[in-house]
Amino acid sequence: MNLLHIDSSILGDHSVSRKVSAAAVVAIVAANPGVKVTYRDLDAAPAPHQSGALLAARLLDPGARSADQARDITEADAVLDEFLAADIVVIGAPMYNFGIPSTLKSWIDHLAIAGKTFSYSEAGVQGLAGGKRLILASSRGGFYGADSPMAAVQHQESYLRDFFRFIGIPDVEVVSAEGVNYGPDHKQKALDGAVAEAANLGRALQAA
Score class of each variant (00 low, 15 high):
Asn2Ala: 06
Leu3Gln: 01
Leu4Met: 10
His5Met: 11
Ser8Asn: 03
Asp13Ser: 15
His14Glu: 11
His14Arg: 14
Ser17Trp: 04
Val20Gly: 09
Val20Asp: 04
Ser21Gln: 11
Ala23Gln: 04
Val25Asn: 08
Val25Trp: 08
Ala27Asp: 09
Ala30Gln: 13
Ala31Trp: 05
Pro33Ala: 08
Pro33Phe: 10
Lys36Trp: 02
Thr38Cys: 11
Thr38Tyr: 10
Tyr39Pro: 02
Tyr39Asn: 05
Leu42Gln: 09
Ala44Leu: 12
Ala45Pro: 07
Ser51Val: 00
Gly52Tyr: 13
Ala53Gln: 13
Leu54Cys: 09
Leu54Glu: 11
Leu55Gly: 02
Asp61Trp: 12
Asp61His: 15
Ala64Phe: 12
Ala67Trp: 06
Asp68Pro: 06
Gln69Arg: 01
Gln69Phe: 02
Gln69Asp: 10
Asp72Arg: 13
Asp72Asn: 15
Ile73Pro: 03
Ile73Glu: 11
Ala76Met: 10
Asp77Phe: 15
Glu82Ile: 13
Ala85Ser: 14
Ala86Asp: 13
Ile88Pro: 02
Val89Thr: 07
Val90Arg: 03
Val90Tyr: 07
Val90Ser: 05
Ile91Trp: 11
Gly92Arg: 06
Gly92Ile: 08
Pro94Asp: 00
Met95Asp: 07
Tyr96Ala: 00
Asn97Lys: 09
Ile100Arg: 00
Thr103Cys: 09
Ser106Thr: 12
Ser106Ile: 03
Trp107Gly: 08
Leu111Ala: 08
Leu111Asn: 08
Ile113His: 06
Ile113Thr: 15
Ala114Met: 15
Ala114Leu: 09
Gly115Arg: 01
Gly115Cys: 02
Lys116Pro: 03
Thr117Ile: 04
Phe118Arg: 01
Glu122Arg: 11
Gln126Phe: 02
Leu128Met: 08
Leu128Gly: 07
Ala129Ile: 03
Ala129Met: 05
Ala129Arg: 04
Gly131Arg: 14
Lys132Thr: 14
Arg133Asp: 12
Ile135Ser: 03
Ile135Glu: 05
Ile135Trp: 10
Leu136Gly: 10
Leu136Ile: 14
Ala137Asn: 06
Ala137Asp: 05
Ser139Ala: 14
Arg140Gln: 14
Arg140Glu: 08
Gly142Trp: 02
Phe143His: 11
Gly145Asn: 13
Ser148Phe: 10
Met150Asn: 12
Ala151Glu: 13
Val153Gln: 09
His155Cys: 04
Gln156Tyr: 04
Glu157Tyr: 00
Arg161Thr: 14
Asp162Ala: 15
Asp162Met: 13
Phe164Asn: 00
Ile167Trp: 04
Gly168Lys: 03
Ile169Cys: 02
Ile169Phe: 02
Asp171Gly: 10
Glu173Val: 12
Val174Asn: 12
Val174Gly: 12
Val175Thr: 04
Ser176Thr: 08
Glu178Ile: 01
Glu178Asp: 10
Tyr182Ala: 12
Gly183Trp: 03
Pro184Asp: 08
Asp185Leu: 07
Asp185Ser: 11
His186Trp: 10
Gln188Tyr: 00
Lys189Ala: 14
Leu191Gly: 02
Ala196Pro: 05
Ala196Gln: 14
Glu197Gly: 06
Asn200Glu: 15
Leu201His: 05
Leu201Thr: 02
Ala204Ser: 15
Gln206Gly: 07
